[in-house]
């Protein structure tokens, strides 16, 4: 499927080594086989968009990458560390993988600045002043430095999601996971979040992004992955994926999603 030369993205950019390797991964919720034989290789610097109908297992898959969900079979190797039950490994992976959630999940009892400095101080053991300087740098990048001393509850949805992105970036992650970052937002806020994500992509961040924003997929993705019923059905560069979908299910999905 992936016929591009190794370490060169579909869009022609040079890529690094594998950051995430998922091999023959399966997951069950009780008896329900939610992920079936997932194989995925993400190179450093690669931007991947995952789409598919609701309930197809997209969230579950990316949540396995930082062990918010446990897989039962197969291997997941992130930045050279294999995810097992070993807490040390899990912590090591989580330090390097940032995640942005659909509902932001900011800490409501902490200010925006404290949200951003908490993990650097407690996980990376940075001095407070240094953590705050870094946090302000990223808050500026997501264009809300003036909200630093407010509480999340006082911000709009789009602002909250940008804070959530900044909070993850403060840990200087090697990979960013996005789980439908814009689907809880009003249309006019979607753009401000997508702009931040596009900027991030242009700076070379490795990203896996579950989204139905096809415009975003077309502009930044190196590869689009289509999932259905817990399986990866199709995987292709965006040009091919949108103009020439191979499987019937992909065609159906695209016709539905592009209809409006």
């Amino acid at each position: 499927m992936n016929d591009s030369v190794n370490n060169v993205s579909a869009t022609g950019r040079a890529l690094g080594d594998s950051t995430i390797e998922i091999r023959a991964m399966h997951k069950w919720y009780g008896d329900f086989h939610v992920l079936r034989d997932i194989n995925l290789d993400v190179k450093s610097g690669e931007r991947i968009v995952v789409c598919g109908p609701s309930g197809s297992g997209k969230s579950t898959m990316i949540r396995c990458i930082n062990r918010l969900e446990e897989h039962q079979q197969g291997d997941i190797i992130v930045d050279g560390v294999e995810l097992t039950n070993d807490l040390k490994n899990i912590e090591a992976v989580r330090r390097e993988v940032g995640m942005v959630f659909q509902h932001f999940n900011l800490f409501p009892h902490l200010t925006v600045l404290e949200n951003c400095t908490l993990a650097p101080i407690w996980v990376r053991k940075q001095p407070k002043a240094e953590a705050e300087a870094t946090a302000m740098k990223y808050l500026e990048r997501v264009k809300i430095p003036d909200q630093a001393l407010k509480y999340p509850g006082q911000l709009s949805g789009g602002q909250q999601q940008r804070v959530a992105i900044a909070r993850s970036l403060c840990m200087s992650p090697k990979v960013m996971l996005f789980d439908e970052p814009t689907s809880a937002l009003d249309p006019e806020m979607i753009k401000e979040v997508l702009d931040v994500m596009i900027e991030l992509a242009e700076e070379g961040m490795t990203m896996i992004c579950v989204t139905h924003e096809m415009g975003f997929a077309k502009t930044v993705a190196d590869r689009v992955i289509f999932m259905d019923e817990g399986q990866i059905i199709e995987e292709n560069e965006p040009q091919q994926f949108f103009n020439n979908p191979q499987s019937e299910r992909t065609q159906l999905f695209l016709s539905q999603i592009l209809a409006h």
Binding site: N66, R67, L68, E91, R94, R95, V97, G98, M99, F101, H103, N105, L106, F107, L118, A119, W122, V123, R167, S168, M171
Partner: peptide, 20 residues
């Protein structure tokens, strides 16, 4: 979502409980 966010940031059990 609060514990998940704390987990995703790499916080261990006790800091996550105490701080979040």
């Amino acid at each position: 979502g609060q514990t998940e966010a704390a987990d995703a940031l790499g916080l261990k059990y006790w800091p996550s409980m105490r701080l979040i």
